[in-house]
């Protein structure tokens, strides 16, 4: 199968067949991560620049390891050490980096649409590692891979996504991805954290946690940012935890073999209790592990994909 994409900007650009192809490719790369010598020469001689304007140890490390295991030369540039603080525009920063001829730029940026912006202005491939509250495609794919690993088939599964939907980039990519792969996605959170038109992304809003959890095959908890408490969206983490936190009791509403996921980093005792976070149903570390394989697949496909710009 070929991969008619130059960039990886979001789940939006892929159809179900392509999503499955990415997951299959990731499956193949998974084997490498269990070897003694965890390196293949696939991207030998390629240069990948991880351009991170926001701190994200987890995602950056995962992309860096993925690149290195494919034998690419990876270079990390972080926002604080870049010229952005000196007032340089994103386009100029990116053009300067491109002048050093990287094959792929992996970018994390605080502004929604930043990777789309870059992709229309650069010749090298752009892989979105999270843009504002827009998309985070590699996270959605690693979630899908983890679900597939535990449940076999994604189609027909009931997936509950719970938390701060408004401020989550993960959730938009996840809804789109799971919806395209045939899952039934339900969303739940305080109304202050539910943006309008969510249904249009391919999910169903349910009014409370119990309804969301009932008979779920997969429970995905989103991180609640501590700085949001006491402002206008929620009165306190304590109350949030009471009505939207996952614990041993309410998890019983889900199917007995339901898996519990979290994109990390977790707030133990807020959106997820320690008992659940460490319990037998959690697959959180599988997510992290699958992250490397998914990112290897994305880098491989971006390097080998369409060489001409799509537009």
């Amino acid at each position: 199968m070929n991969f008619p994409h130059r960039h990886v900007l979001g789940i939006k650009q892929f159809n179900a067949e392509e999503l499955n192809f990415i997951l299959d490719t990731a499956e193949s790369f998974k084997e490498i991560n269990t070897r003694k010598i965890k390196k293949v020469p696939t991207l030998r001689g390629r240069t990948i620049i991880n351009l991170f304007f926001e701190a994200s140890t987890r995602t950056r490390t995962s992309f860096e390891i993925a690149g290195k295991r494919l034998s690419a030369d990876t270079v990390n540039i972080s926002g604080s050490s870049s010229s952005v603080v000196k007032g340089e525009t994103l386009e100029d920063t990116a053009r300067n980096i491109e002048a050093m001829h990287p094959d792929i730029i992996v970018m994390r940026h605080g502004a929604s649409g930043a990777s789309d912006y870059l992709a229309t202005r650069l010749d090298c491939a752009v892989v979105n590692a999270g843009d504002g509250t827009h998309e985070h495609p590699s996270q959605a794919l690693l979630d899908a891979l983890t679900i597939r690993q535990h449940k076999g088939e994604i189609a027909g599964l009931k997936v509950a996504i719970i938390g701060d939907i408004t401020h989550s980039r993960v959730v938009r990519s996840n809804i789109d991805c799971l919806n395209k792969l045939g899952a039934d996605v339900r969303i739940c959170g305080p109304k202050t954290m539910l943006p309008p038109g969510l249904e249009r992304l391919g999910c169903r809003l349910v009014s409370n946690l119990a309804e969301a959890l009932t008979d779920a095959d997969v429970v995905m908890m989103l991180r609640i940012q501590r700085e949001r408490q006491g402002k206008t969206l929620i009165p306190s983490l304590r109350e949030y935890s009471r009505y939207f936190g996952l614990n041993e009791n309410n998890l019983k509403l889900a199917k007995p073999d339901a898996i519990v996921m979290h994109p990390g980093p977790m707030n133990r005792g807020v959106e997820i209790s320690t008992a659940v976070a460490d319990g037998s149903q959690n697959v959180i570390l599988d997510q992290v592990e699958n992250g490397v394989a998914v990112r290897m697949a994305l880098l491989y496909l971006a390097a080998g994909g369409e060489t001409q710009s799509e537009d």
């Binding site: 929604s112 649409g113 509250t133 980039r169 309008p196 038109g197 969510l198």
Partner: peptide, 12 residues
């Protein structure tokens, strides 16, 4: 604020 903003992840 509306479905397009939600989809694009832009503050409404």
């Amino acid at each position: 604020e509306g479905p397009v903003a939600t989809e694009l992840g832009l503050k409404g």
